[in-house]
């Protein structure tokens, strides 16, 4: 008699809540380090504005003295003084 295997629906749900970005505060004043995972391309890059695009959404980062580090696993870390972070979903309107 074979045992029936129950479908583990909880595992599928876990995949959808993997964070795509992380935010850390630096010890110096207003500087922040923001990390984005799964970045496919960089649309714009300057010391005051950076636009990143992932599979589902885009991020617009505005601030001062922005520096960017790209990593092998499509992870991007942005360090600087942030004034505004915009989340642009491909389906809905941009949320700030």
């Amino acid at each position: 008699m074979t045992e029936k295997k129950k479908k583990d629906k909880g595992g599928k749900r876990l995949k959808s809540i993997i964070p795509t970005f992380r935010l850390e505060a630096d010890g110096r004043g207003n500087y922040l380090t923001v990390t984005f995972v799964g970045v496919l391309s960089v649309k714009a890059f300057s010391a005051s504005e950076i636009t990143l695009a992932t599979k589902r959404e885009s991020f617009v980062l505005m601030g001062k003295s922005l520096e960017m580090t790209v990593f092998e696993n499509k992870t991007v870390t942005v360090y600087g003084v942030f004034e505004c972070i915009k989340f642009l979903d491909k389906k809905s309107e941009g949320r700030t």
């Binding site: 970045v39 960089v42 520096e67 960017m68 580090t69 790209v70």
Partner: peptide
């Protein structure tokens, strides 16, 4: 990013 290379671009 597409080549899988790590580097830092400063201000």
């Amino acid at each position: 990013l597409r080549r899988g290379l790590s580097a830092k671009i400063d201000t």
